[in-house]
Simulated assay, not measured.
Amino acid sequence: MSEFAPTDFSLVKPADTAFKPGGLRDFFLYRDLGIAEATHGKVIAHLVKANSPPDSGTGWHRHEADFQIVIMTKGWAKFMYEDQVTLVEAGDVVQQRPGIRHFLFDYSPDMEYLEIVSPADFKTVDVEAPACVVPEPTPWK
């Protein structure tokens, strides 16, 4: 028997939840997958997709989380992880170590990714930029 609190069964079909604004970033839309409720706050999973061009990106930040993965399902995104440019394309999986400084600065109009984070109420903290240059985003046509 697990020492963890039980979780509930959950099935969320595409028609059950819509992409909505109001998440962490105004230029993205978010689709809740019901995992935070089913796990009683232990984990959150949502789909995130581009809603407008990456004019200024996310800015430098880190997350106060125990676990975070991003699975790119469509398109691509460019991140700065510390001082490294990282291209993440459809099919790629990124496991972001807790506390890593990062900046999503560019993405395609069709970008969509699945993000899974624990705990569900993780915090985002703005941080100072490392000593590196962030490239300009690609203009949308």
Rank of each mutant, 00 (worst) to 15 (best):
I116D: 02
P98C: 11
D106V: 03
E37K: 13
C132V: 14
P135L: 09
S56L: 01
M80N: 06
K20N: 07
K13A: 14
R31L: 02
Y113R: 05
I44W: 04
M80I: 01
A45M: 15
H63Y: 08
F27C: 00
K49Q: 10
M1D: 11
V127W: 04
Y113S: 12
V12L: 14
K42E: 14
V70F: 12
Q95D: 12
A5S: 13
G75I: 05
D55E: 14
K78S: 13
E82N: 15
P14R: 08
E115C: 12
S118I: 11
R25F: 10
S56H: 08
V127D: 04
H63E: 07
E115D: 09
Y30R: 01
H46G: 08
I44Q: 03
D106A: 09
I116C: 15
Q95L: 12
A131W: 08
Q68F: 06
F4T: 13
H46T: 05
P130T: 08
K49G: 02
S118H: 10
K13E: 11
A131C: 04
D32Q: 02
G41W: 09
G23H: 03
P119K: 09
H46L: 14
R25H: 02
V85L: 05
P109L: 03
F27Q: 00
D8N: 12
G22I: 07
V127R: 04
P119N: 07
P53F: 00
Y107C: 04
D55R: 03
F27V: 00
E112C: 13
D110Y: 07
S56V: 10
D8E: 12
L29V: 02
D26W: 00
P109S: 07
A50M: 02
G59M: 05
